[in-house]
Measured scan of single mutants.
Amino acid sequence: MKTQEELTEIVRDHFSDMGEAATLYVQVYESSLESLVGGVIFEDGRHYTFVYENEDLVYE
């Protein structure tokens, strides 16, 4: 099982292909040891929320 830090790095790496991230945040109260819930805000103003669970990243 991966730590939240490892899950955060996986998510950060995925979003790095989409541009320069200004902020990546984790909603600790919705996350667990198995999943990471949060969002990313890019330098150009785009904002996505995400759920990373079971090696699957879903974002909108």
Rank of each mutant, 00 (worst) to 15 (best):
D13R: 15
T23Y: 15
E43R: 11
L24I: 14
Q4I: 14
I10C: 13
V51C: 11
A21Q: 10
S35T: 12
E34S: 13
T8P: 03
E20A: 12
T49L: 11
I10G: 02
G45N: 02
M1L: 11
A22G: 09
D17Q: 14
D56W: 14
R12T: 04
Y59R: 02
D44H: 01
T23N: 07
L36K: 00
E53P: 02
R12C: 15
F42H: 00
M1E: 06
T3P: 03
S32I: 08
A21F: 14
A22W: 13
L24H: 01
S16T: 08
A22P: 10
R46I: 05
F42P: 00
N54L: 08
L36G: 01
Y48F: 11
E34F: 07
E55D: 12
I41A: 01
Y25C: 13
S16K: 14
D13K: 15
M18H: 06
Y59V: 12
K2P: 09
F50L: 01
S32C: 12
E30L: 12
V28C: 15
E9Q: 14
V37K: 12
V26M: 02
V40S: 00
Y25H: 05
S35H: 09
V37S: 08
Q27N: 12
T8L: 15
R46L: 05
G45T: 01
E53A: 13
S35L: 15
G39T: 12
F50H: 00
Y48V: 04
A22K: 13
S32T: 09
L24G: 02
S16L: 11
E34C: 13
I41T: 05
V51N: 01
L7A: 04
L33E: 07
V58T: 10
E60D: 06
F15P: 02
E6R: 07
F42N: 01
A22L: 14
Y59A: 03
Y59C: 12
E6V: 06
F15H: 03
V28Y: 13
T49F: 12
K2E: 02
T23W: 14
S31A: 13
D56A: 14
Q27P: 03
L24P: 01
G19A: 05
E43M: 11
K2I: 08
D13E: 12
T23V: 13
E53V: 12
E34P: 10
K2L: 10
T49S: 06
M18V: 05
N54I: 10
S31C: 11
E30A: 07
L33I: 10
D17R: 15
R46A: 04
G45W: 10
S35P: 01
L7Y: 04
I41L: 06
E30Q: 08
E30F: 13
E30I: 14
E60L: 10
L57P: 04
L24M: 07
E20V: 14
E43F: 08
I10V: 05
I41M: 06
Q4T: 05
L7F: 03
Q27A: 10
E5D: 08
E6Y: 07
D13F: 13
G45M: 02
Y52W: 10
E5P: 05
T23H: 12
A21V: 15
D13Y: 11
F42R: 01
Y25L: 06
E43G: 10
Y25A: 03
Y48A: 00
Q4V: 13
T8E: 13
A21P: 13
V37C: 12
D56P: 01
H47I: 09
A22R: 11
Y59K: 01
I10Y: 04
D13H: 14
D56H: 15
E60V: 13
M18I: 07
T49V: 11
F42E: 00
M1V: 11
G45H: 03
D17Y: 13
Y25S: 03
G39Q: 10
G38F: 13
A21K: 11
V37F: 07
N54T: 04
D44P: 02
Y48I: 07
E20T: 13
F42G: 00
T49C: 15
D44Y: 10
E60A: 09
E9G: 07
G39V: 14
V40Y: 03
K2G: 03
F42W: 03
F15C: 12
E20S: 12
I10K: 06
S16Q: 09
Y29I: 05
I41E: 02
S16I: 09
V26P: 00
E53R: 08
S16G: 07
E34L: 08
